[in-house]
């Protein structure tokens, strides 16, 4: 019976995801009742709109967190690569397509640097990516000569990338398709490849993996480079969403990505986490953001409630693992 199997899954390994999904549904319903004009197609699109760049950052972050690492640089790398892409387009006069490649390459490059620092030089991830957070914020601002970079509007011929990566003129959420595509690719990577196995294994017990003769350093380089690549993708969506990129910003965005992972059931101790959970976490944050705005509550309350949700997620996890422990 598939239903029995589903129940078993919800009670067992899928519990955290099921709780996150229930919380998402509850929040959405709550805001539909109490928010103003929340239950509308436009609000739903706004919820999607504000989840793409966090979504891409969070997909990369999930891999990093499963491997028991952390990537504090994704926020500034996302904005920084969008800034460098803006320089490529407006200052170097490269075609928009090339500028988009520059964005992704910039993100990937920072990821590679993180990977080398952590994998090859054995720096703790927290410190290495804290350093690259500042470096990316500073360096990309230098490249942009501390000028705000502006991407063309949707009506400009070069604004095509917005309709392709963000939203069509009629309002179809194209960004959702791209997030979904890369979500599926990453799920396949994580489930069916060596990369996935080693990512979980490194997070679970790095020493054991090392003793079995696997080159951990190389795999860490790959994991952080992937995270950087996703920051680059987030950079494209960020540019499409906001058009104007201000130098020296982006610090703090990584916290939303980390929060999404944690809400989705990833453990910062490593070895545990799923992309489906992360995606639910991203949506929980977006619903909260838009919902609280629809209740006229200022930004400070968003931060307050996102904090509460993160704590609640961890609390649920702790209670659950205690129970599991007692059952043994």
């Amino acid at each position: 019976m598939p239903i029995n199997r589903l129940i078993a899954y919800i009670k067992g390994p899928g519990q955290q995801k099921a709780i996150a999904l229930a919380a998402l549904a509850a929040l959405y319903t709550f805001f539909c009742i109490f928010g103003s004009h929340f239950a509308s197609r436009e609000t739903l699109i706004s919820i999607f709109d504000s989840s793409y760049y966090t979504g891409f950052m969070a997909i990369g972050m999930t891999l990093v967190i499963i491997s028991a690492g952390i990537d504090l640089s994704v926020g500034t790398v996302t904005v920084g690569s969008a800034l460098v892409g803006g320089v490529a387009y407006t200052v170097w006069h490269l075609p928009m397509g090339v500028a988009l490649v520059v964005i992704v390459l910039t993100g990937t490059l920072f990821g590679l640097i993180n990977g080398l620092l952590i994998g090859k030089l054995d720096l703790p991830p927290f410190i290495a990516t804290l350093g690259s957070q500042f470096i990316s914020m500073g360096l990309c601002s230098v490249v942009a000569r501390v000028q705000t970079m502006r991407y063309p509007s949707i009506s400009h011929p070069d604004g095509w990338f917005k309709t392709v990566f963000f939203k069509t003129v009629s309002g179809f959420p194209m960004g959702a398709l791209w997030v979904l595509l890369f979500f599926v690719i990453t799920v396949i990577l994580l489930t069916y490849t060596k990369l996935g196995n080693y990512t979980y294994a490194i997070g679970d017990n790095e020493e054991a993996v090392r003793l079995s003769g696997i080159n951990i350093a190389n795999w860490k380089v790959v994991i952080y480079t992937i995270s950087g690549f996703f920051s680059g993708l987030a950079g494209i969506i960020y540019a499409a969403t906001f058009s104007s990129i201000t130098p020296q910003t982006g610090g703090g965005l990584e916290m939303y990505a980390i929060a999404a992972c944690v809400i989705g059931g990833a453990s910062l101790a490593g070895g545990v986490g799923s992309l489906t959970g992360t995606l639910i976490g991203v949506l929980v944050i977006s619903v909260l953001k838009n919902g609280l705005m629809s209740m006229w509550l200022p930004v400070q309350w968003q931060q307050f409630f996102i904090g509460l949700v993160v704590l609640a997620a961890v609390l649920v996890d702790v209670i659950r693992s205690k129970k599991a422990h007692n059952a043994k």
Partner: peptide
Amino acid sequence: NGPDAESNIPQQVEQVQAAINQ
């Protein structure tokens, strides 16, 4: 409403969008 700083352009864009949704 308003963003937490004048440089926080993304936050203001999201606020304007949410405002129009309402």
